[in-house]
Amino acid sequence: MSRRSWPFVLGGLLIALLLAGVVSNYASAHPDGLDSSLLKGCTVNAEGEITGGSCPAQKSQRHELSDSPLADYGVRGISNGFLSTGLSGVLGVLLTFALGGGLFWLARRRGPAPAGASAAPGGGPAGTDRPASRAGSAG
C-alpha cells in the first residue's frame, strides 16, 4: 500500500469505528421487515413475546450460536446496553478490518514479474515475431 493511501484507510477505519461504537446504539429497536412479516397474525406483548394468534414466528427455534459472546448485537457479560452494543460493533469492525487486511496482504503482488514472463514466445515484444530492437536503433 502506498503512503498516500494510509490516511484514507485509517480515516475510513475511524469513521467505521465511530458508527459502530456510537451511532449503532441509535438504530431502530423496532423489528425489521422480515421480523414484522413473520409476526403477522400473532398478538405480541410489550416484551415482544407472542401471546396469541397464529404466525410463522411461533415455529422459530433458538439459533445454535445464540450463546456466543457477540450474539444479539451485544457482548455477553456486559449489563450496560449502550456499552455492550457499542463494544460489539467496534469488535465486529476490527475483526472485519483484520480479516480483510489479511486477505489483501496475502493476495498482494510480491514483487516484479520474472524477466521474460511478459515476452512473446519468439523473444520479441508480445504480438510480434521478431526480436526486440535495441534502444536507440532505427529498427
Rank of each mutant, 00 (worst) to 15 (best):
1 M>E: 07
2 S>L: 07
3 R>M: 14
5 S>L: 15
6 W>E: 09
7 P>M: 02
9 V>P: 04
11 G>L: 12
11 G>D: 11
12 G>F: 13
12 G>D: 07
12 G>T: 14
12 G>H: 04
12 G>R: 09
12 G>N: 03
14 L>W: 09
15 I>F: 14
15 I>V: 15
17 L>A: 13
18 L>I: 05
19 L>E: 01
20 A>L: 08
20 A>G: 05
21 G>V: 12
23 V>M: 12
25 N>G: 01
27 A>N: 04
29 A>G: 09
31 P>E: 07
31 P>G: 09
32 D>R: 05
36 S>N: 01
38 L>T: 11
40 K>Y: 01
40 K>M: 09
40 K>T: 14
40 K>L: 03
43 T>Y: 03
43 T>F: 02
44 V>H: 06
44 V>A: 12
45 N>Q: 05
48 G>T: 08
49 E>M: 03
50 I>D: 07
51 T>M: 03
54 S>P: 00
56 P>K: 11
56 P>G: 11
59 K>N: 12
59 K>E: 10
60 S>D: 13
61 Q>T: 13
62 R>C: 06
65 L>M: 13
66 S>A: 15
68 S>F: 11
69 P>V: 12
74 G>W: 08
74 G>R: 14
75 V>I: 11
75 V>M: 13
75 V>G: 06
75 V>K: 10
77 G>F: 02
77 G>R: 10
77 G>Y: 07
78 I>S: 06
78 I>C: 01
79 S>P: 02
82 F>P: 04
82 F>A: 11
83 L>R: 03
83 L>I: 15
84 S>G: 01
88 S>I: 01
89 G>N: 08
89 G>D: 04
89 G>Y: 06
89 G>K: 01
89 G>I: 00
91 L>I: 15
91 L>H: 00
91 L>E: 06
91 L>S: 00
93 V>Y: 07
93 V>P: 05
94 L>Y: 01
94 L>H: 09
96 T>L: 13
99 L>N: 02
99 L>I: 14
100 G>V: 07
101 G>P: 00
101 G>C: 12
102 G>T: 12
103 L>F: 11
104 F>I: 13
104 F>M: 15
106 L>K: 15
107 A>I: 06
108 R>H: 02
110 R>D: 14
110 R>I: 07
111 G>M: 07
114 P>Q: 06
116 G>Y: 11
117 A>W: 10
118 S>M: 11
118 S>W: 14
120 A>F: 01
121 P>D: 10
123 G>P: 04
123 G>A: 06
124 G>C: 07
124 G>E: 03
125 P>A: 13
127 G>R: 08
127 G>D: 01
128 T>F: 05
128 T>Q: 15
128 T>I: 02
128 T>D: 01
128 T>G: 00
128 T>K: 00
129 D>N: 13
129 D>E: 05
130 R>T: 08
130 R>I: 05
130 R>H: 10
132 A>N: 02
132 A>E: 13
133 S>V: 08
136 G>H: 08
136 G>E: 05
137 S>D: 11
138 A>C: 07
139 G>W: 02
